[in-house]
Design a protein around this nucleic acid. Structure first.
Length: 780
DNA sequence: CACCCTCGAGTTCA
DNA sequence: CTCGAGGGTG
């Protein structure tokens, strides 16, 4: 039964409906955006009801773009299939500049005229199609198979920056806008941190995180879940880069399309560039590749498009991809490989660390077969099973990192990793050091072979006594309990009692990880019994083993049970003699180095220096009270406790006793005694300097020592408290950080001047501009 | 309490 | 060299 009404009534209703529509859409934008609610849900509902009522009373007012018909009206539910008005094609790929050049050459030939190229970043995200009717968002869908995608309208509404209604006037009745939904790198890291906090699985990469977030479904009405989901979606962003169905666009080029999209209030990328030649496009590919980690989002390549729209039509498309655009793909920095096993290693502190053993694979320039998994919680959080295909990358382009499993490739044969209850090396029951610790530790500090080996290696390391020859393999050789039955070093207490004769008896079994070949290596005197200079590099000191086999002795290998597959090799006596010689020299190392080599918890080079400066001898440290220890700058209650605890252990004291007997110096000669820590002036007094890269005239250690000797503080990382960064060739991220913080950067020559005469010596160079600096740098 | 710093561990390369 | 964890300082 039709209702009757006058023209005036209709006019008034129309005006009211338009007003309501505007307010409702505004509210919707605000609601889905980050603003707090501008109106209450009740007010919103009331407006919707009133609008529905008006549309019922005046059917003329109904239109496709009314809010009652669009988002939120549950026209299509989440993940329902949506057919794109225009198919979403994919792009053909090229993987080298040569291939790109070939593509561009063909395009230019087929075009028959000059071609401008539009270059843009290829965002690693999800392709999404937004359908606007008369300027109002009516649906958002994933790419799907290109013809039919999944409806994600409900979720996309929470992604910031996607307008529910386009700005401006005179929008076409139908336009499809294509773009990429992604999660910015920063937000991705936050998200994974939150996932860990919630005990949920972390996302393997930004792309998965974006896809996972967009494909969430809020189950039921659980408010927490809904809030969490909204929070995740709010981290997503979208950038648009194209247009689907749109007959007769009012512009002539792709770049003008972007301009128009921007005017409409759609988010476009700030990074695109139109260039006149294919060489310029190649240059864009080159530079963007170098900077690929500096953008807010991950990129996996560059997209090059012919800018002129008319050419798009002329060049046409194949069934899969347009001929007027191409994707240049960067070599993957993430690869898939097989997780063969997860095994547990024990470090010098006894911490049991699971790590992944993988099918060797090349990633970002080197072959990787192992990566740490930190602890059992991380293994769980990453969700990897033994036998999985996993995603591997190099964090910071250096450290291999397992990101997560490729779940789709599982065949059911995978098994879960079970953290061992006992130490894999000595069989002692593993336990957390203190209540609530995630890390498990082997409490058998004195005798666990892994820990003794680790401590001995640490003693030889650069930060401690810096003993040449005493590296990973030597430490293992000296402590491995298999052949002979008792190792020369049961603990580090016997280190300085070693004799050349003892070393000659050492045989080491090394298993080559690549070939699986087992080798016996034995130290032996030269035929004439002399220390022998005859075989310096060829047959090698102990380090040579690292080169050829690369691996530590295999403690699980029983030499009696099997014949050796490889040759027995003899380590020349030179290495043995050198080791003894270097150990002898190390006995008079500075006190702080001796302290570091004692392996006291939390006492590294810095804390050790502080303690050594203040107390001057180990005896003084031993006699000090907790308060006195903690009064030293850089030492607090926890380190003080660690020092006190260390002296309580019998076999620790035995180390001191035996080292003392062997001639190790535990006293700084001429130190006036505790508390007299000299407030040494020096040209660098009160200044903090960081050295990075290779500084001509200084070794890494030398630069550090020089800073301290000049009375300055040698910091290991750049912060705003840093006064100078001395940077040479090969300086890495520290240089960038210094620039970002505005810290003064100096070169090797200026560094030398600074050490001599303090800040005044180079103050001239800084105020006087280029001339003075050129003088300093001219010889590089 | 925020910020900065050190410690400790793992990894690969020249 | 980088990261996470956790200590120290203002």
């Amino acid at each position: 039964m039709a209702e009757t009404y006058t023209i005036d009534e209709l006019g008034a209703a129309k005006a009211e409906a338009e007003q309501l529509t505007t307010r409702i859409l505004d509210l919707r934008d605000a609601y889905y955006g980050e603003d707090a609610a501008v109106a209450s849900d009740e007010e919103y509902d009331a407006m919707m009801h009133r609008l529905e009522e008006l549309e019922r009373l005046f059917p003329e007012l109904q239109s496709q773009d009314s809010p009652t018909q669009t988002v939120g009206a549950a026209r299509a539910s989440l993940f329902d299939p949506v057919e794109h008005a225009e198919p979403m094609l994919s792009l053909d790929n090229v993987f080298s500049i040569d291939e790109f050049d070939a593509w561009a050459t063909k395009v230019e030939r087929d075009s028959g005229r000059r071609v401008d190229y539009l270059c843009e970043l290829k965002i690693d995200g999800l392709a999404i199609n937004l359908r606007y009717e008369n300027g109002v968002l009516v649906s958002a869908a994933t790419r799907g198979d290109g013809v039919v995608g999944e409806n994600v309208t409900e979720n996309i509404a929470f992604v910031h920056g996607i307008p529910q209604r386009l700005e401006g006037e005179g929008h076409p009745p139908l336009v499809e806008v294509r773009g990429e939904v992604f999660i910015p790198v920063k937000a991705f890291e936050e998200l994974n941190a939150e996932q860990v906090a919630l005990g949920d699985r972390i996302f393997a990469n930004a792309r998965n995180a974006a896809a996972g977030s967009l494909r969430q479904k809020a189950e039921g009405k659980n408010a927490d879940k809904r809030a969490q989901m909204k929070n995740r979606l709010a981290k997503l962003r979208m950038l648009v880069h194209g247009i689907g169905a749109w007959p007769n666009p009012p512009v002539e080029s792709q770049s003008e399309v972007y301009g128009l999209l921007k005017v409409w209030g759609l988010p476009t990328s700030p990074y695109f560039q139109v260039v006149p030649t294919k060489e310029d496009a190649a240059a864009f590919i080159e530079t963007s590749g170098k900077n690929r980690h500096t953008f807010e989002h991950e990129i996996d390549g560059i997209v090059i498009k012919v800018d002129e729209l008319e050419l798009h039509g002329e060049l046409g498309a194949t069934s899969r991809a347009p001929r007027w655009a191409i994707a240049y793909k960067y070599p993957p920095e993430q690869v898939n490989t097989r997780l063969l096993d997860i095994v547990v290693s024990v470090g010098r502190t006894g911490r049991a660390t699971p790590f992944a053993i993988m099918e060797p694979v090349r990633v970002a320039g080197s072959v990787v077969r192992q990566a740490t998994l930190h602890n059992q919680d991380v293994v769980k959080a990453k969700g990897v099973l033994i036998g999985d295909t996993v995603v591997l990358r190099k964090a910071g382009d250096v450290i291999p990192e397992v990101l997560g499993p490729v779940v789709e490739l599982r065949d059911g044969s995978e098994r879960e990793f079970v953290m061992p209850t006992h130490c894999p090396e000595c069989g002692t029951l593993l336990a957390p050091a203190k209540e609530g610790d995630i890390d498990l530790r082997c409490p058998n500090a004195r005798s666990c072979p892994a820990q003794v080996r680790g401590r001995v290696e640490h003693i030889g390391s650069r930060g401690a006594l810096d003993i040449e020859v005493l590296g990973e393999v030597t430490a293992a050789a000296l402590t491995q309990p298999l052949v002979p039955a008792t190792p020369p070093l049961e603990t580090e207490a016997a280190l300085f009692d070693l004799t050349v004769e003892e070393l000659f008896g050492i045989r080491v079994i090394v298993r080559d990880n690549e070939t699986g070949e087992v080798k016996l290596v034995e130290a032996a005197p030269n035929a004439d019994g002399t220390p022998g200079e005859s075989t310096p590099k060829e047959v090698a000191p102990f380090q040579r083993l690292r080169r050829t086999s690369g691996k530590t002795p295999d403690p699980a290998y029983d030499p009696e049970a099997e014949e050796f597959a490889g040759d027995a090799r003899y380590v020349p006596s030179k290495a043995a003699h050198d080791l003894i010689l270097n150990l002898g020299k190390a006995k008079t190392s500075p006190l702080w180095r001796i302290l570091v080599s004692l392996n006291i918890r939390h006492v590294g080079p810095v804390a050790a220096r502080a303690l050594a400066n203040y107390f001057g001898s180990l005896d003084a440290i031993r006699a000090a009270s907790r308060d006195e220890l903690a009064s030293v700058e850089g030492v607090g209650g926890i380190i003080a406790d660690a020092v006190l605890d260390w002296f309580q252990v019998d076999w620790h004291v035995e180390i001191i006793d035996r080292w003392t007997t062997a001639g190790v110096q535990f006293t700084t000669p001429g130190h006036p005694g505790p508390g007299a820590a000299a407030e040494q002036g020096g040209p660098l007094a009160g200044l903090t300097v960081v050295a990075t890269g290779s500084l001509e005239g200084f070794s890494r250690e030398g630069a550090l020592e020089a800073i301290i000797a000049a009375g300055g503080k040698a910091a290991s990382s750049v912060s705003k408290k840093t006064d100078y960064v001395a940077a040479g060739p090969g300086a890495g991220s520290k240089l960038g950080k210094a620039e970002a913080l505005g810290v003064r950067i100096i070169d090797a020559a200026q560094f030398a001047l600074l050490l001599e005469g303090g800040p005044d010596a180079i103050a001239v160079a800084s105020t006087d501009t280029s001339v003075a600096e050129n003088d300093n740098e001219s010889d590089s």
